[in-house]
Simulated scan of single mutants.
Amino acid sequence: MCLAIPGKIKSIETRHDGMVRMAKVSFGGITKEASLEMLPEAQVNDYVLVHVGVAISRVDEQEAQKTFKYLEEIGELGELEDVDEYLPKNN
């Protein structure tokens, strides 16, 4: 099952001569990288939904926490271990 997981942006950096924005996103203590290409307005401390390494929308903190708790309860967070193969590699 493919899910968009809510997380909080901890930091943002640019790559490829400033052409690509990448964020470090915290998912309940697990930190992964996500592309911000679909959300150029995203900032540090924003909550975003991330699908296969791409932040696809912003959400408020309450909605992010509610969704994350639900995903944890139904056992769907194990997929966080599998998304590394879809994420952009550091250059």
Rank of each mutant, 00 (worst) to 15 (best):
83 V>F: 03
32 K>M: 13
10 K>M: 13
17 D>L: 15
88 P>V: 06
10 K>P: 00
77 L>C: 07
88 P>T: 02
26 S>K: 12
10 K>Q: 13
86 Y>P: 02
83 V>E: 13
27 F>V: 11
22 M>T: 01
24 K>A: 14
71 L>P: 13
42 A>Q: 04
62 Q>H: 10
37 E>F: 06
21 R>Q: 13
56 I>F: 00
26 S>G: 10
74 I>K: 15
30 I>E: 15
79 E>W: 09
84 D>W: 11
22 M>P: 05
68 F>Q: 09
57 S>D: 11
25 V>W: 00
42 A>I: 05
59 V>F: 00
24 K>N: 14
17 D>R: 15
6 P>V: 12
62 Q>D: 03
2 C>P: 06
51 H>D: 09
47 Y>H: 13
11 S>W: 05
84 D>L: 11
1 M>E: 14
32 K>N: 15
64 A>R: 01
35 S>D: 07
25 V>N: 04
81 E>G: 14
90 N>T: 12
38 M>L: 13
63 E>Y: 10
76 E>F: 10
71 L>G: 06
76 E>I: 10
79 E>T: 13
80 L>Q: 08
17 D>V: 04
22 M>E: 09
83 V>D: 10
82 D>K: 12
82 D>F: 03
23 A>E: 11
7 G>I: 01
30 I>K: 15
25 V>H: 01
32 K>L: 15
34 A>G: 13
51 H>P: 02
82 D>S: 15
20 V>E: 07
26 S>T: 04
64 A>V: 05
35 S>L: 13
5 I>A: 14
46 D>G: 08
23 A>T: 10
44 V>W: 06
68 F>W: 14
2 C>A: 06
59 V>Q: 01
55 A>P: 07
49 L>E: 03
85 E>I: 15
43 Q>C: 02
77 L>A: 08
36 L>M: 05
64 A>T: 08
